[in-house]
């Protein structure tokens, strides 16, 4: 997998704002950000109201995803460029989603909204409308999605990578520090999980580090290249960022994102939890 096929620079993006067949899509944690301003011509996907099922705790199914992209005017053959705030967390989550539903060509804007703003590149408040399409999503590729039973059986057997901040890993915080710490589930991490915060894979301006730096990062953390890997965080968006690094940038073969993440695992009855800075051991 080469970086050029999955990641575009801000400069490339600005030069291709009006190129036919390329659609810019903003996906934000702050769902009001797009309405304040956006990259000219970009459409919006709301990670919550558009991408999550309104009833079940799951994301939208194949038919819902097809209807959503059709309505936003995205075609099966369009090159989709995803970007967003918070260092592309939710854009990376959407990227994983587009891959899960088999979109042919989807790429991330390196650095997302942050890099774009810091570069003082154009932003628009104009409403964007695109003609509807007949998008047809493929069957979900669950080889890139981990469920809770996969995670429990991966303890001590596969690579588990906890990408949350060190304070969440050790159990001192339950959520990222821009959110109230009010949740009731248990704190800590999945035993044997390595702590490699997602932020170590990014530069201060939100762009990804170089392939060499990324390879060194995971090698030093002790990731076993011969085993498959499951990444998790709190709700599956920061782990999408790391999933993108491991699978799309570094080309690891078997990498899955556990989108249930700590909000699910930390609420399960009867599963082991480790506290503190050490990965912890397998219970026998």
């Amino acid at each position: 997998m080469s970086r050029e096929n999955v990641l575009v620079s801000a400069q490339w993006a600005q030069e291709n704002l009006e190129t036919p067949g390329i659609v810019f899509v903003e996906v934000d944690e702050d769902t009001a950000a797009y309405d304040r301003n956006h990259i000219p011509g970009a459409v919006k996907l709301d990670w919550k109201t558009d991408l999550q099922d309104p009833v079940r705790r799951d994301f939208v199914n194949r038919d819902q995803f097809s209807a959503l992209l059709s309505e936003r005017g995205i075609g099966n053959n369009d090159i989709v460029i995803l970007y967003g705030g918070n260092n592309n967390w939710f854009a990376a989550y959407a990227y994983w989603y587009f891959k899960l539903y088999g979109h042919l060509d989807v790429r991330l804007l390196d650095g997302g909204r942050k890099k774009w703003e810091l570069d003082d590149r154009p932003l628009s408040t104009d409403a964007v409308t695109r003609n509807a399409t007949n998008y047809e999503a493929k069957s979900p590729d669950n080889s890139i999605r981990a469920f809770r039973d996969d995670v429990v059986s991966a303890i001590g057997a596969q690579n588990l990578v906890d990408v949350r901040s060190p304070d969440e890993y050790t159990g001192r915080l339950l959520a990222p520090a821009h959110l109230p710490q009010e949740q009731s589930q248990r704190a800590g991490h999945i035993p044997t999980a390595l702590s490699v915060p997602w932020s170590k894979a990014a530069n201060a301006d939100g762009t990804f580090k170089s392939d060499d730096e990324l390879r060194d990062l995971y090698a030093e953390a002790g990731l076993d290249g011969q085993k498959s890997t499951i990444a998790y965080c709190r709700i599956g968006e920061r782990s999408s960022h790391t999933w993108f690094v491991l699978r799309e940038l570094l080309g690891h073969a078997e990498v899955r994102n556990y989108d249930g993440s700590w909000t699910e695992y930390g609420s399960l009855v009867g599963v082991p939890i480790a506290l503190g800075e050490e990965p912890g051991k397998v219970e026998v």
């Binding site: 702050d30 901040s165 060190p166 304070d167 959520a175 990222p176 520090a177 821009h178 710490q181 915060p197």
Partner: peptide, 23 residues
């Protein structure tokens, strides 16, 4: 955090205000 590791990031409001929930 105390070791210099990233914990969270926010963008300031029109009034320049930020807020974190830490420990």
């Amino acid at each position: 955090d105390a070791s210099g590791e990233f914990t969270a990031e926010v963008v300031t409001s029109p009034e320049g205000v930020f807020r974190f929930f830490a420990a």
